[in-house]
């Protein structure tokens, strides 16, 4: 289970974004080692297609940009990160063996406080995963879960339900089946965190009730609580000391899948 893109899709996506490149050039770049090698995969129709890791797209764009600036392929090769990252390891849940013990008793769904908001109960996703990762339906469950651990506390088979949902949310589900809960809030949260080392926790609850105007020193934050108080301005979180080192470390920490 790996979610690479076929060559045709890569070329088409590039075309949509205004880059032009032929199939032959693409393969030439692969030959030169500028792009990663594709993986053969038999098709239902009978033919064979080559699949490339999704990051190939970004890398190709960089190559084309650098080429436009007049660099030679040799120079470009030097500029690009030397190691072509190996394709992502297959996404597996390390505790899959424990999931097999699920009794399908429904306790996790029954006790889940936010069950009504979920498309599917946790156990249905567990069963689908055991069926094979491709059978995973698209469901908001991993994102709706508030992490209360009631399900794990009650599960008669001691299934690591919360870890499993966390896995689905982070890496288990392919991009097409992901569910973005509140991109706007997420952006604000992370930008504050990166700018200051501190953020607002309550934003998580009030995803739709925070507003930021301006940036840098002119930044102003408004908060609207549901209820009669309405909107009020609040000060931005205080800052930690060495922000640039903090940011560097944060970037570094993102490296591992």
């Amino acid at each position: 289970m790996e979610f690479g893109l076929p060559l045709e899709d890569i070329l088409q996506k590039l075309a949509e974004e205004g880059y032009r490149i032929s199939r032959r050039t693409f393969l030439y770049y692969v030959q030169l080692g500028l792009l990663p090698k594709g993986k053969r995969k038999g098709q239902k129709s009978g033919g064979v297609k080559f699949y490339y890791p999704t990051w190939t797209l970004e890398r190709l764009k960089t190559i084309l940009r650098l080429k436009k600036q007049g660099l030679t392929l040799k120079e470009i090769k030097k500029r690009l990160p030397r190691e072509i990252p190996s394709p992502l390891p297959p996404k597996t849940f390390p505790q899959t063996a424990r999931l097999k013990d699920c009794n399908v008793c429904g306790i996790c769904g029954a006790i889940c406080p936010v069950h009504e908001e979920m498309d599917l109960s946790p156990w249905r996703l567990i069963q689908a995963w055991l069926e094979g990762p491709d059978s995973l339906p698209s469901a908001n469950t991993p994102w709706v879960c508030v992490g209360c651990y009631l399900c794990e506390e009650r599960c008669p088979r001691e299934i690591p339900v919360v870890d499993f949902l966390r896995f689905l949310r982070r890496e288990g589900l392919p991009p097409g089946k992901r569910w973005r809960k509140h991109p706007e809030w997420s952006r604000i949260f992370w930008s504050l965190l990166e700018e200051r080392g501190r953020s607002f926790d309550f934003g998580a609850v009030h995803a739709y009730h925070i507003r930021i105007i301006g940036s840098g020193e002119n930044q102003r934050l408004f908060l609207r609580l549901p209820g009669p108080e309405g909107e009020k301005e609040v000060s931005a979180p205080s800052k930690i000391k060495n922000l640039s080192a903090f940011r560097r470390a944060l970037e570094h920490a993102r490296e591992w899948p």
Binding site: V104, C105, G106, G109, A110, H115, E116, S121, W123
Partner: peptide
């Protein structure tokens, strides 16, 4: 009483 009707509509 909380329980999930696992064969039905999931009443809780």
């Amino acid at each position: 009483l909380l329980a999930e009707d696992t064969l039905g509509a999931g009443q809780r």
